[in-house]
Simulated scan of single mutants.
Amino acid sequence: MEHRHLGSSGLKISEIAYGNWLTHGSQLENEAATACVHAALDAGITTFDTADVYANTAAETVLGEALRGQRRESLEIFTKVYWPTGPGGPNDVGLSRKHIMESVHASLRRLGTEYVDLYQAHRFDTETPLEETIQAFADVVRQGKALYIGVSEWTADQIRAGQALARPLGIPLVSNQPQYSMLWRVIEGEVVPTSRELGLSQIVWSPVAQGVLTGKYLPGQAAPAGSRATDDKGGARMIGRWMRDDVLAAVQGLVPIAAELDLTMAQLAVAWVLQNDNVAAAIIGASRPEQVAENVAAAGVSIPAELMTRIDSVLGQVAETDPARTAQDAPARRPA
């Protein structure tokens, strides 16, 4: 496992991070989830990402229990705040001072730790003054409850505005957590250049495009039984945008490229996002320990420039590159 600096900070994180969105507390039994976390530790992963909203707080509890007994200083534990939690009251959502302060306390309790290494704004809150949000995050850091602050799925303009407020308070934003894969490249045009300029790294989620880039979904054929595309707990909804025959056919064009590199399709997908020098880590999930071992093999892989060009050619007609999609997909108001 290799490690990379997170933004312009001194913190290093494993370039493969383990995340438990859509798995812990929902799709997996706790015993299986713990086995996957331990497989991640065995593979050299030190960075673990979760959020209070995952399985309505249950994912944080499962991760905390799975990491119990590990040397805390050897881990980087990340969580997030914004989406509704609890019973869904008017202040159980967003980035108000009230919700941030109450949420960080609850997250620490569930995770069984005195601090998180990175606390992230899970989306931009259009209903809270940005000054209030950044000041609350600064207080969280000063109180020792988080060491660094990041954001998730913010636009380039939002990142710039947030950093302008955060730097004078001594808590510069160090990261953004966007979706990024060979099929979803919307951060490349604006978010990545802005982040490079301002000292943020990307911690990317869904590098395998919800499993589509594994190549197991074939055009004109039903999704395999037990796959994410058949999951009625949220997986099928998330993967739906990719379940088109033109996308699935294009993905099959990657098979010979993966074979040329002696990689599985999943390894190729994870290795591809790590070729971007603004990416500090790719978040992987798993429902079985062996999936962790497979994905970790992408660490340290270098894809030759000519093969990167071939990948662009294969996926050129189906890859989404419009920078506006970040703003278009963001909530205009806090969800109820």
Rank of each mutant, 00 (worst) to 15 (best):
T133K: 01
T194Y: 02
G285T: 15
Q158M: 05
I303T: 08
D139R: 04
L218H: 14
L111V: 14
G44H: 13
A58P: 15
W184P: 05
R228G: 13
E76H: 12
T23W: 04
L63N: 07
A156L: 13
V191R: 04
S9G: 06
D322K: 03
W272Q: 00
Q27E: 11
L118F: 04
L213W: 00
I13T: 06
D329G: 09
G7T: 12
Q135N: 08
A166S: 13
K145Y: 10
S103L: 01
D139A: 00
M243H: 09
G300L: 06
V140P: 05
R244H: 06
S313C: 09
L41K: 03
R71K: 06
R334T: 12
I13H: 00
G253R: 07
E190F: 09
S227C: 01
E131N: 10
A293M: 12
T57L: 03
R110Y: 09
T113L: 00
F137A: 07
E15S: 00
G88Y: 09
G285R: 10
G253C: 10
N278H: 15
G235A: 02
T264Q: 03
P219M: 02
S96D: 09
L274Y: 01
G150A: 11
A269G: 01
A229P: 07
S175C: 08
S287L: 14
V174L: 05
A327R: 09
N56W: 13
A305W: 08
P331W: 02
E73K: 13
H5L: 11
V191T: 01
R333Y: 11
